[in-house]
C-alpha cells in the first residue's frame, strides 16, 4: 500500500459538511477527501455518524424525512447537493451495498439486470454479458451460473451480499459505498467479501464503513475515525493504526474506550 501515502487525486470531498436529523447534528462540519481508486475505511463507535456520512454521499438520506445538510460535498468536483443534481444519475455513479443483504424478491438474473434495465436500452445479449460480468466481478458467477432464474431469496447470506454487490457493479458505478457489508455475515463469508474489496480496489473508489478495526486494517488504504459526529482523524491506514495522532483515536483502536 505504498501509493496510499502519495498524494492522489480526490474523488469525493466533504468541505465543512454537516448532516442534521431535524435539529440534531449527526455529522459535524466534516472535511474529508476520499482519494480516487483507493479503499477508504470509516471507523468509529456505534452512533457516531458513520452511516449518516456514507449515505450522504449518494444522497440516500434524502429518503429520511427531516434530514438536511449544510456545507459542501463534492463528487468529481461537482456539489452533490447542488440544485441541478439528479439523484437517479448520482446514485447510478455511486453504488451502495447495505449492512443487511437486501436482494429483491426476483430471480438472480433480474436482480443483477435491474439497474442496467433502468438506465439503458441494452440488447438481450448485452444484458446477458453485463450480468455475467457483474457476477464474475462479485465472485458469484461460478456458484449461480446454473440457476440464474431461481429466486434470489434462496441464496445464503454471504451469497446474497455478493449478489447485492454484483447488482451495484452492474450499473458500472465509479464509486462504491459499503455500510458494514459484513456485519450480518459469518467469518467465512466475511473473508470472501474482504477479498473482493481488495480485488475491486483500483477499479472503483471504495468507501467502507466498518466497526471492525481488523477489517479496516486489512482492506483499506486510508482510514477515517469518527467520534460523536466529528471527524477526529483521517490518515493512511498504516499510520492511523500504528501511530495515531489523536488521543481519542488511540483510545479507540486500543480498545480503551469509555
Amino acid at each position: 500500500m505504498e501509493d496510499a501515502k502519495q498524494k492522489t487525486k480526490t474523488h469525493a470531498e466533504a468541505k465543512g459538511f454537516s448532516v442534521f436529523y431535524r435539529q440534531c447534528e449527526a455529522v459535524k462540519r466534516v472535511d474529508l477527501a476520499i482519494p480516487f481508486g483507493l479503499v477508504t475505511a470509516i471507523i468509529g463507535p456505534s452512533g457516531c455518524g458513520k452511516s449518516t456520512f456514507l449515505r450522504a454521499i449518494n444522497r440516500m438520506n434524502d429518503l429520511i424525512p427531516g434530514c438536511h445538510t449544510d456545507g459542501e460535498l463534492l463528487f468529481d468536483g461537482q456539489n452533490v447537493y447542488g440544485g441541478d443534481v439528479d439523484t437517479a444519475v448520482l446514485r447510478r455513479r455511486i453504488g451502495m451495498v447495505f449492512q443487511k443483504p437486501n436482494p429483491f424478491p426476483k430471480s438472480i438474473y433480474d436482480n443483477v439486470a435491474y439497474g442496467p434495465r433502468l438506465h439503458g436500452n441494452l440488447s438481450k445479449a448485452e444484458l446477458d454479458e453485463r450480468v455475467e460480468e457483474s457476477l464474475v466481478g462479485a465472485a458469484l458467477w461460478e456458484e449461480v451460473k446454473d440457476r440464474l432464474n431461481k429466486n434470489a431469496l434462496g441464496l445464503s447470506g454471504g451469497q446474497a451480499q455478493r449478489l447485492c454487490l454484483a447488482r451495484a457493479l452492474a450499473v458500472r458505478p465509479e464509486m462504491l459505498l459499503m455500510d458494514e457489508p459484513t456485519s450480518a455475515l459469518d467469518p467465512k463469508a466475511t473473508a470472501r467479501i474482504e477479498e473482493l474489496i481488495i480485488q475491486l480496489r483500483g477499479r472503483y473508489t471504495i468507501a467502507v464503513v466498518t466497526h471492525n478495526m481488523q477489517q479496516a486494517a486489512r482492506v483499506s488504504d486510508m482510514t477515517a475515525f469518527f467520534y460523536e459526529g466529528n471527524l477526529v482523524e483521517f490518515a493512511a491506514t498504516d499510520d492511523l493504526f500504528t501511530k495515531p495522532r489523536e488521543k481519542q483515536t488511540e483510545n479507540y483502536i486500543t480498545g480503551r474506550f469509555g
Binding site: D86, A88, V89, L118, H119, G120, N121
Partner: peptide
C-alpha cells in the same frame, strides 16, 4: 433524454 421520460 431518457432520464427526462423517467422523470416525467
Amino acid at each position: 433524454m431518457r432520464m427526462l421520460t423517467r422523470k416525467i
